[in-house]
């Protein structure tokens, strides 16, 4: 195992709200080796986006950050703004959910790509334009030279996301954070974009964090998966191990709640009752306990730590893990 490119150590994010501090991310640890893909899965409000913002150091002004984000040997949390700015692009890049808002609507696509290349790589205009055409071609945009002169609104959603990816890839980053990159797209286009990300990642030996709410999206396209619930990572394991045997009841319930293609129509879905807890009122015990079938007094009283009691590379935070006898888990 190579030294991690990114290691997130005890990161917490607190946001002040009228109803008190909201702990959006609670003591998260993560590590990602170069060239690997980590999927972060969770429902809305679980803190996955705030965690990605914390890694990128793009948190809202009022947010309070705790812990360290080590990237290629440097702690991003106390890097000066100028050094951070130089890091974004050539080292760290991001693709957001909605390419319409991440692209500047009044500039042509060409201007946006070329300016990025000139600013970060010091290319001259002609070289940057040539490179821009190559990049657009690489992300599967037909007639790339003509596209450079177009504005974002002239492209379809899928094409805009391809442009956003081209811009993110333009400086050959070491880490790409893709935050719900396909949620706004149609199914057939979603598959194309995910394929594109996977292909470019392998070609460039780039590390990637794929943030999504869809377990189906991470299943075939990540090396490791971290499942978040109420600001914490509740289960983290190599992808194949996770799907082969989930330990955390939340992960299992989340998977079960997805309609299956092979079950006949009108099969009742095993829904998870209730909803996630109010993040301004943290629970004493496990955050999932109020919705969990297996919860007992211990679950409500004490928060289970995230650990690897089986020493097999599967981390989970649960007092009653699935697929194990009660004695083995204690």
């Amino acid at each position: 195992m190579t030294a991690p490119l990114l290691s997130v150590e005890g990161v917490s994010v607190e946001l002040p709200t009228p109803r008190g501090a909201l702990r959006a991310v609670d003591n998260v640890d993560l590590a990602l080796a170069p060239g690997r893909t980590l999927g972060i899965v969770g429902e809305s409000g679980c803190g996955k986006t705030m965690l990605s913002r914390a890694i990128l150091q793009l948190l809202p002004k009022r947010a309070r950050l705790g812990g360290r984000v080590m990237f290629a040997g440097r702690d991003l949390t106390n890097l000066p703004a100028e050094a951070l700015r130089r890091l974004r692009g050539p080292e760290l890049a991001v693709v957001f959910q909605d390419p319409m808002t991440s692209l500047n609507p009044v500039l042509t696509i060409g201007t946006q790509i070329i300016e990025t290349l000139q600013a970060h790589l010091g290319m001259d205009a002609a070289a940057a334009a040539t490179r821009g055409v190559e990049l657009l071609a690489a992300v599967g945009i037909p007639a790339p030279a003509q596209r450079l002169r177009q504005y974002p609104h002239q492209l379809s959603g899928g094409m805009r996301q391809r442009v956003a990816i081209a811009i993110a890839l333009s400086c050959e980053p070491k880490l790409l954070i893709a935050d719900e990159p396909t949620t706004a797209l149609d199914v057939t286009v979603q598959a194309q974009i995910l394929d594109l990300l996977a292909r470019e990642q392998q070609r460039r030996h780039m590390a990637m964090i794929l943030i999504t709410h869809d377990l189906g999206v991470v299943a075939g396209r990540t090396d490791e998966v971290a499942v978040m619930y109420a600001g914490r990572i509740v289960e983290r394991a190599p992808t194949s191990r996770l799907f082969a045997g989930m330990r955390m009841p939340y992960t299992e319930a989340l998977l079960a709640a997805i309609p299956k293609l092979d079950s006949p129509p009108h099969t009742p879905l095993p829904a998870i009752a209730g909803r996630p807890p109010d993040p301004t009122r943290p629970l004493a015990g496990c955050s999932f306990a109020p919705r969990c079938r297996y919860a007992d007094g211990r679950c409500r009283a004490a928060k289970p730590p995230l650990g690897d009691p089986e020493r097999a590379g599967t981390l989970y935070a649960c007092w009653h893990p699935l697929g194990l006898s009660e004695s083995a888990s204690a």
Binding site: V187, T188, Q190, A191, Q192, L194, D195, D214, L215, G216, V217, A219, G220, R221, T239, S240, F243, L255, I258, L261
Partner: peptide
């Protein structure tokens, strides 16, 4: 074919 299947043993269909 385009539906992502939550099972890593099912490889996503290539070249949709």
């Amino acid at each position: 074919e385009a539906i992502p299947v939550p099972d890593p043993t099912v490889k996503p269909a290539a070249n949709l």
